[in-house]
Amino acid sequence: MRGDRLFITVMLGPALIILALFYLWPMVENLRVSFTDLTLLRLRVGGQWIGLANYEEFITSPETGRLMMNTFIWLTAISVAVRLLLGLAIALIVNTPLVRHLRLATLARIAILVPWATPPVVAIIIWRWLLEAPNGALNSVLLALGLIDTPIAFLADLRTVWPSVIAIVVWNTVPLIALSLLASLQAVPADLYEAAELDGATRSAKFWHITLPFLKPTIVVLGLTSVFWTFNNFVYVWLATGAGPGTFTNVLATEIYIRSFVDFRLGYGAAIGIVMALIMAVFGYFYFRMIGRRQIEEVL
């Protein structure tokens, strides 16, 4: 229908034009730069075409293994897993009849909002102070409780630096998960539980067979969206540890920053960016294969 076609164009056009300009064009430009030796000092004149040299250097670099490990395992996998588990725990606790009965749920939901309303830059500053040694609040508490004898430099000690960074990320991002899961929990039909109780189901059985399956779609969506956000995130690691001690917490996004804006090698930084986008695209492909396909088919 001609009318529909016009309608589709008008409705879809603005979004696509904005995305084309602010995403597609810079992405294409970035792809081009990744094949050059462009530096920040020569941004005006432009770089020389060097083919795949940047990619080759990145792939063969001895650093790359650890960068991948840090980005995949520590920054992304563990932090997303902790976030989901903690978010689930918060949602379950807030949703218990006891908490509802005592009318604490609203208070809890307001409290959950606090970290979310805190911009990451602020969150990191606060946590750096809390984790500081020897006077930071956490050290003071642990010392007072007798759990440790000497203060721990949480963001400097190889044993604690990753858990600390993850703690910051989780604190700042768990509210989204907790509130979403809380909303889903409230949508679980009460008669399902009643029926199960009549059958004599234990509480853990009810959790595993009713609650969890009901939450699963939300968990999967939240988990995967969180993966995208976290994988590409540069701010947490950069401002919390500066990728240190040494290069211990360096991740792909901070490596891009160091290469592009410390070493001025824009071409090399661009190549890492392309590799990251490809990794996420592959990931995204499986994402849609696994859960998105059903959703897309139903939705579209």
Binding site: E132, A133, P134, P151, A153, F154, L155, A156, D157, T241, G242, G244, P245
Partner: peptide
Amino acid sequence: TPKSMLGVSDWADPV
């Protein structure tokens, strides 16, 4: 010099 200084890079750090 305490190990915590490993987490301090800036000469003007409040620590």
